[in-house]
C-alpha cells in the first residue's frame, strides 16, 4: 500500500471533500468577478474624469449654468454650513476648556480652537457635510435625469450633457466648497467665543486677536488647497454616480447613496494624504 492509500479515500483527506472543493471554486469565481467589477468601475471613473477635464478646457463654457450651480451649491448650503460651523466651535471650546483650565493654559484656548478649526476640523467636517448635501443632491438629480431620459433629450438637442451638467457642477463645487469651508471656520471661531463666554467673560476683540495671533500662513494655505480638492472630489463623485446611474428608479437612490459614501471616504483619504504632505513640507 502507498502512503496515500494508508490515509484512506482521497475525498476524506483532512476532511476536504469534493463538495468543499466545489464551494471553494464558486467562491473564487465570485471574488474574481467582484475584483473585475471593481477594476471596471475604477477604469470608468478614470475615463469619466479625463472626459470632464477635457470638456472643461475644450471651449464653449456654459457660464450661465455655472453661475446657477454656484448659487445652488454655495448660497443654498449656507444655513446648514452656518449651523455646523457655530456648533463645531462651541462644542470644541466647551470640551477643551476644562482640560486647559487644569493645565493653567486657558489663555491658549482661542488660539488652539482657531488652529484646530482652520487646519483640520473646519475643512474635513464641512466637506463631509457637503458630501452629504451636495454630493447626494448631484447624484440624485443626474440619476433621475438619466432614468427619465432627460440627459438623452439634452444630447439630441445639440447640447453636450457633460459640458452642461457635469463640468458646471464640478467647477461650482470646486469653487464654492472652499468658500463654505472658510465661512464655517469664521463662524466656528465665533461659536468658540460664545462657548468661552458660557463660563467666563472674554471680550470679542480680545478673543479674536488671541485666536488669530496663533494662526500662520502655513496653517491656512494647506487647508485652502485641500479644500479645493475636497470640492472637486465631491462634485466629480456626485456627477459620476448620477450620470452613470442605471435605468430603473431604484438606481437613483443607489446613485445618491453611493455618491455620499464614496465622496466621504475620498475626503478622508485625501485629507490623510494632505496632512502627510504638509508635514513633510514643514
Amino acid at each position: 500500500m502507498t502512503d496515500a492509500n494508508k490515509l484512506g479515500p482521497r475525498t476524506n483527506i483532512k476532511g476536504f471533500t469534493a463538495h468543499h472543493s466545489f464551494r471553494l471554486g464558486n467562491h473564487a469565481i465570485a471574488k474574481t468577478e467582484e475584483a473585475g467589477n471593481f477594476l471596471t468601475e475604477l477604469a470608468d471613473a478614470f475615463l469619466f474624469t479625463v472626459r470632464v477635464i477635457r470638456e472643461t478646457f475644450s471651449g464653449g463654457f456654459e457660464f450661465k449654468e455655472f453661475l446657477f450651480q454656484c448659487f445652488q451649491v454655495g448660497y443654498k448650503s449656507l444655513p446648514l454650513i452656518s449651523v455646523t460651523g457655530i456648533i463645531m466651535g462651541l462644542v470644541l471650546t466647551i470640551q477643551s476648556r476644562p482640560v486647559l483650565v487644569d493645565f493653567g493654559a486657558v489663555t491658549k484656548l482661542p488660539g488652539m480652537v482657531a488652529v484646530s478649526l482652520i487646519r483640520e476640523m473646519g475643512p474635513v467636517i464641512t466637506a463631509l457635510i457637503c458630501a452629504g448635501k451636495i454630493g447626494s443632491g448631484m447624484g440624485a438629480e443626474l440619476g433621475s435625469m438619466k432614468v427619465t431620459e432627460q440627459i438623452d433629450a439634452m444630447e439630441v438637442s445639440s447640447t453636450n450633457p457633460i459640458k452642461f451638467l457635469v463640468v458646471t457642477r464640478v467647477l461650482a463645487a470646486t469653487l464654492m466648497i472652499p468658500l463654505l469651508i472658510l465661512f464655517a471656520d469664521g463662524l466656528g471661531v465665533m461659536g468658540s467665543w460664545a462657548g468661552a463666554n458660557i463660563k467666563g467673560d472674554v471680550s470679542f476683540v480680545l478673543f479674536f486677536s488671541q485666536a488669530f495671533s496663533h494662526v500662520h500662513f502655513m496653517d491656512l494655505l494647506p487647508a485652502v488647497v485641500k479644500s479645493f480638492f475636497f470640492g472637486g472630489i465631491i462634485g466629480l463623485v456626485g456627477c459620476y454616480k448620477g450620470y452613470n446611474a442605471g435605468r430603473g428608479t431604484e438606481s437613483v437612490g443607489i446613485a445618491a447613496n453611493s455618491a455620499v459614501v464614496l465622496a466621504s471616504l475620498l475626503v478622508i483619504v485625501v485629507d490623510m494624504i494632505a496632512v502627510q504632505i504638509t508635514d513633510m513640507l514643514k
Binding site: 433621475s144 435625469m145 427619465t148 431620459e149 432627460q150 438623452d152 433629450a153 439634452m154 439630441v156
Partner: peptide, 10 residues
C-alpha cells in the same frame, strides 16, 4: 425625437 417618457426637464 419624442421620448417615451416625454423627458421634459423637471
Amino acid at each position: 425625437f419624442l421620448f417615451q417618457s416625454g423627458a421634459l426637464y423637471d
